[in-house]
């Protein structure tokens, strides 16, 4: 009796994905953010259209790529969305394969910047975001990236950790404010290191920041536009800075894992995701800013997104090669200069 229920239990656990398998399934790896919206706008309609099941793994870029690398011999994940520099690193590791753009009906509709950001056909951009500084207007005024190290903000500012997607771009802009735009990031790290005690935390999760601002732990922090919603809704006087050095940002891309054996369905899914219909819904839901140039959104949504060819063109982006090539050195330097 005991034994039988144990075996039943174990098999349910072990075979959970297989037990309700349909004829086909697609395993994707995505950011954990806004899963309910993605489910409604993207996964469920896609499942209904194809009759295939979408299995979702969530987490941050780096953790998920670590797992993809670990399973390279027998890939579990068919397609993933990651930052463009993580895609470059995965590509160099041989974890990816080119995406068949001829099979993508929506490919031509994309902004040129999104079409082939790695230059080898292994990644396609699906969303852009701006990165700037969110700050409490009742406490301070932020007009430059250099203001993050001002006396006014000492003890009231959070900065992204160098290992996050926001870290290097924010450092790069801080460097610009200090008059040094070298990608070694040495000058901004040195400056940040001198002010390390004035930084409340080097955050790894942007979700913390709204709470920290509400609790008055911090007054300002560099954030990605995708996290802006929760600040805006908090009812506090918080503004999105337009620093004189400009805004930076990032591009997130979709990639196809090498030898996954499920390329056809994964390509179909990518095409669906890039379609004007889905991209419009994601934009209107303030989930992701569009990479599809045919998307038009309401003024209210546009206000909260990184939207339009002009906006996208103005972003001061760190090239992905610079990030991948320097990342180890940055972490070393960060450990030596900033966190000690």
């Amino acid at each position: 009796m005991l034994k039988r229920s144990l075996i039943a239990g174990a098999s349910v656990l072990a075979l959970a994905p297989a037990a309700n398998a349909q004829d086909c399934e697609l395993t994707i790896s995505v950011y954990s953010f806004a899963q309910d919206e993605f489910d409604e706008i993207l996964y469920t309609p896609f499942e209904e259209e194809t009759g295939c099941e979408v299995i979702v793994e969530t987490g941050n870029s780096v953790e998920r790529l670590a797992k993809i690398a670990a399973n390279r011999e027998s890939p579990v994940i068919d397609m993933a969305v990651v930052s463009v520099h993580d895609a470059l690193e995965a590509s160099r590791d041989g974890l990816l394969q080119p995406i068949d753009t001829d099979a993508l009906e929506n490919f031509d509709k994309l902004y040129d910047l999104a079409k082939d950001p790695l230059g080898n056909g292994e990644a396609i951009g699906y969303t852009f975001y701006a990165t700037s500084i969110a700050y409490r207007t009742d406490k301070v005024e932020v007009t430059s990236w250099g203001d993050l190290l001002s006396d006014e903000l000492a003890g009231n500012v959070a900065f992204p950790d160098v290992t996050t997607n926001q870290g290097p771009p924010a450092l790069y802009m801080l460097g610009k404010a200090l008059g040094d735009d070298d990608t070694s990031l040495e000058a901004p790290m040195e400056a940040l290191g001198e002010h390390a005690d004035d930084i409340v935390t080097f955050y790894v999760r942007s979700s913390q920041l709204a709470q920290l601002m509400m609790q008055e732990e911090i007054w300002a922090a560099p954030i990605g536009r995708f996290a802006w919603g929760q600040f805006k809704d908090s009812g506090l006087p918080i503004a999105w800075a337009e620093p004189e050095e400009g805004q930076t940002g990032g591009l997130n891309v979709m990639v196809m894992t090498a030898n996954n054996g499920n390329e056809e369905l994964a390509t179909r899914f990518m095409d669906y995701w890039l379609s004007t219909e889905v991209q419009t819904k994601l934009a209107e839901g303030l989930v992701d800013s569009p990479a599809n140039a045919e998307v038009t959104v309401s003024d209210e949504a546009a206000e909260n997104l990184t939207y339009g060819a002009e906006t996208v063109a103005q972003l001061d982006l760190l090239p992905p090669e610079a990030i991948v090539d320097n990342r180890d050195a940055w972490i070393e330097q960060w450990n030596a200069l900033v966190v000690q």
């Binding site: 953010f33 941050n60 913390q208 709204a210 929760q230």
Partner: peptide
């Protein structure tokens, strides 16, 4: 924990 990465509501 994953949810807390997105929001602290």
């Amino acid at each position: 924990i994953g949810y807390m990465e997105i929001t602290y509501d």
